[in-house]
Structure formats: C-alpha cells, structure tokens
Nucleic acid binder design. Structure first.
Length: 466
DNA sequence: TCTGGGGTCCTAGGACCC
DNA sequence: TCTGGGGTCCTAGGACCC
C-alpha cells in the first residue's frame, strides 16, 4: 500500500472530524479526454481536423457543450450560448452531439483505465480518477507514476485515436488540477512533498468547487490564490463560505484531501428536462408536456431497475427564475401512472401564467428494487395517509433486490380515477396488502387530502368512464 | 437571439418525535 | 402549564461540476 501520514493540524480540529490520512506518494491519477465531443467528431470526420468544431444544441436556445481547441482560440467556451459562439467563430462546424457514439467511446476508455487500476471512479463520460496504489506494495515513485500515465495516454490514443491529459498527485485535488494545467495532451505528476508549493500560487478558481459565487466572496476579502485561502484561519473560511463548504475548501487549499477513489457510486436521482424553443404559457400544453416528461423519466428509472420515493417538478419561467416542487410517497414507485399524475399536480402548484421556458421532472430517494406494489415496504404497519399529507414521516428502508409477491386480486390500479361516497372524486395513489390509498384531487381541484381504505370498502367505486 | 441537460452536495426552516 | 433540546425527515433553493 501507499505510505500514509497523519493529517497536519489534526490536533486543532473538531473532535467529530475523523482522523485524516494523507498519501505520501502520487498514487491518485486524474485522466480526461481533451475536448471530448469535438475530438470524436474530428476523429470521425477528417475534413474537420485542424478546423474549429463546436458541438452543442443547434436550436434557438442551444449552448456549447464542447469546443475544439481551434474554436477556443476565438474565445468559444463550454456553456456559452450558440448565438455567441456563432458570432465569435462563424467559420466553425456546428454539430449536434452524438451521445450514443460518445458513450461507446467512453466505455472503451474506461476499459483501458481498468487495465491500469482496479479502482476507477468515472466522473463523466470522459473523465475518471484512478487509484494506482491499490495494487502496489511500495509507495509510487514519481517516475513510476509518470510511466503509468504515459502508458495510459499511449493506449487510449492507439485504441480510440483521442488524446487525453493525465495528472497525478497524492490526492484527488492535486491530480485533477495537475491534469488541467497541462492540457491538451498533458502529463503532469506532482512529486510527493511538492503539493503545497504546487498549489499555493494558483488562483483559487482552480479548485473544483470554487465557482463564480465563491470566488467573488474570496476576492472581496482579498483572497485570490490558493495559498492566500490557506492563510485564512479555518473559522474565517467557515464564516465566509459556510461551515461545510468553507472548511472543506480551506482544507483543500492546504492540500489536505483524503477523499478516497470510489468506484460504483450509486445514482441518487434521475431527471429529464427540456427547454422549449419558445416559452409556453398555455396550461393545457404545459400539462401535456409534464406528462410526457414523467413518462420519459420513468422509462429511464425502469431501465435501471430502480424505484424512487420523491417526485420533483422543475419550472424555469420566462425571466429565468427557477422553481421546484416535490412530493414524497410513502414507498418507492416506478409506476408511470403515479409519477405522471403527481407531476401534473406539482405543476399546478406553480404560477406559470407568465410563461415557461423549461420544464423538468425528476425522481430521487432511489432504491435498488423493482416496485411491485406501493406498500411493499418493510414498515409492517398499515398505510397511514392522513388528511393532506403525502409523506408519513417514516422512510421506507427498503431491502435490496426485494422480491415481493405481486398484489393479486386487488381491484385498484394506481392512477385510476375513483369516487368515494363521502369524500368525492380522487385517484388511486397506490394499493396493496388489503389497502388502497386515494388522493382526493381532480384536475379542477388539484390539491387534496390523501386517505387510505380497505380494498373492499363499499363506499369506494371506480369513477364512471367518460 | 442571452443563459442546455444531466447530475451532486449543502443550507435553512418547519414538522414531528423523544 | 411552561420550557427545552436533539435528531430525523421533508421541502425549496442555490452553488457547482462536466
């Protein structure tokens, strides 16, 4: 294993903080493909080589996903509007992204990374951390790290035709910054012990996690370099930037970064969103759109055999203010009818009369098992739907790869319109284990209470079909 | 003709429970 | 009747990353 040393300054930190250990050799690698999408397009279309290429949305509200280095010379950057990119570099080739191709190339690259380390943490299609200490019994020398990086670059170029940049250091932070500094086709290893001198003169904005808002706060107090951030006290950083964020960045500025390289990180949410070519104000059209997005997100959810408890709707208004509304179910679902209906309701909680430029639907609180009925959680108790409440307070701690028997002979279908003799019209949010939960809302009165009944409640009936 | 789409993490307030 | 604190869950928003 890599050599390990105690976290400097540990004595002064709060006792709840776990003991930190820093590596003593450059055994963390960060690798990413140079101008990935654009480079794939240039690779596949030789006439584009040597010329500016801009990949991104081609619609009226598109933005740049990736600009080739030729295009960057004209000031074209990721996230810039396509309109501005066209103004800066009209002679560029403007291409829509081909994600299926990028995913395939990405898989090739990740396979190559896996040949060099058993511990690969992908960050995106074109980027990953590699822990090269896992298979080594001795600390990794600078020369050994350089050699491994060189071989990875060679192999990626031979197999995919793409150039990558690799950085290595004793932490994720140092490796990542090192790979950034030498782009494109970079190879930079920060030797053990040289981390502080490497970091100190760099602008704070080099630290991943320091964006425009954080940079502005730091600049306000005269902090421009990583070394100047490190020279603050931990308390000053925490007060300036927030407790967690401030302390984290302050530690990073010292090079105190013990974050582990972690393969197989489970997804926490799934979402889809669309920006319209023109704003939509018509509630009927918005309702149709949000239903379609609910269907798309459930498709993605089910493709990964996941279920989720919390449904969110995101609305970006004409003036770009962004609102979210969410609701949490008593148990995870992957039922399109429930998600569709809930998304529709959440949309009604936002005033969209001024016009909407984007709608999104997301699902979080994911569990790794296929939902068979809404109450197939392990709380054991009966459903408790109280008036107006969606969540019951107790989270379903789902067992992995749960295999519940199907809820057979239950007459109620999630999403179904029903009428209760006392409570009026509503729709079935879920059923199972002898119970059915009804949300008493209609399109005209979209927000209403939730109540649960026995399956055979004589007062509950399917709504008349239209 | 301003500002995509997919995510992650953090904060802060209120509800609720012990 | 009054007075609390801690912990967890939920919601909404914001910063940030590629």
């Amino acid at each position: 294993m890599d050599g390990i040393v105690s976290w400097p300054g540990e004595e002064s930190s709060i006792t709840s903080r776990p003991a930190r250990r820093l590596r003593t050799s450059p055994s963390v690698l960060h690798a990413d493909v140079d101008a990935f999408y654009a480079a794939v397009e240039q690779r596949d279309k030789p006439s584009l080589r040597g010329h500016p290429v801009i990949v991104g949305g081609l619609g009226p509200r598109g933005v740049v996903a990736t600009a080739s280095y030729e295009a960057r010379r004209y000031g074209v950057r990721s996230a810039m509007s396509m309109v501005e990119a066209r103004a800066r570099c009209p002679q560029a080739a403007f291409l829509a992204p081909r994600f299926a191709v990028y995913r395939a190339v990405s898989a090739q690259i990740m396979d190559i990374f896996a040949e060099f380390s058993a511990l690969v943490e992908p960050l995106s299609l074109d980027e990953a951390y590699l822990d090269i200490a896992t298979s080594a019994h001795e600390p990794i020398s600078t020369e050994a790290a350089v050699e491994i990086a060189r071989r990875i670059k060679e192999k990626v170029r031979a197999v995919t035709g793409l150039s990558i940049s690799v950085g290595a250091g004793n932490s994720k932070l140092v490796a990542k910054i090192a790979s950034d500094l030498d782009k494109p086709d970079g190879l930079r290893v920060v030797p053990a012990g040289a981390e502080a001198d490497f970091l100190a003169p760099l602008p704070v904005t080099r630290i991943p996690g320091v964006g425009p808002a954080t940079a502005a706060r730091l600049h306000n107090v005269g902090v421009h370099t990583i070394g100047e951030l490190a020279a603050l006290s931990e308390e000053e950083a925490a007060n300036l930037l927030g407790r967690a964020h401030g302390r984290h960045l302050w530690a990073l500025a010292h090079g105190w970064d013990d974050r582990a390289v972690c393969a197989d990180r489970a997804a926490k949410s799934v979402s889809v969103e669309d920006t319209f070519d023109q704003d939509i104000a018509d509630p009927g059209r918005l309702r149709i759109v949000v239903r379609a997005m609910a269907e798309r997100v459930v498709e993605r959810l089910r493709a990964h055999t996941l279920s989720g408890r919390t449904i969110s709707v995101k609305v970006r208004l004409t003036d770009f203010t962004t609102l979210t509304r969410s609701a949490t179910l008593p148990a995870p679902t992957d039922d399109v009818r429930v998600v569709r209906r809930l998304a529709e309701r959440l949309l009604t909680e936002v005033d969209t009369s001024s016009g909407v430029r984007l709608i999104g639907v997301g699902i979080s609180g994911l569990t790794d098992w296929v939902q068979l009925n809404l109450f197939a959680d392990d709380r054991g108790g009966r459903p408790t739907g109280g008036a107006g409440e969606v969540s019951t307070g107790t989270p379903g701690t789902a067992s992995p790869m749960h295999t519940d028997p199907p809820a057979s002979a239950v007459p109620w279908t999630p999403g179904q319109d029903v009428v209760h003799r006392r409570y009026g019209p509503g729709w079935v949010q879920g059923s199972g284990r002898g119970w059915v939960t009804v949300r008493f809302e209609t399109r005209d009165t979209p927000v209403g209470p939730v109540r649960s009944f026995r399956d055979a409640d004589p007062e509950l009936h399917p709504a008349e079909s239209p």
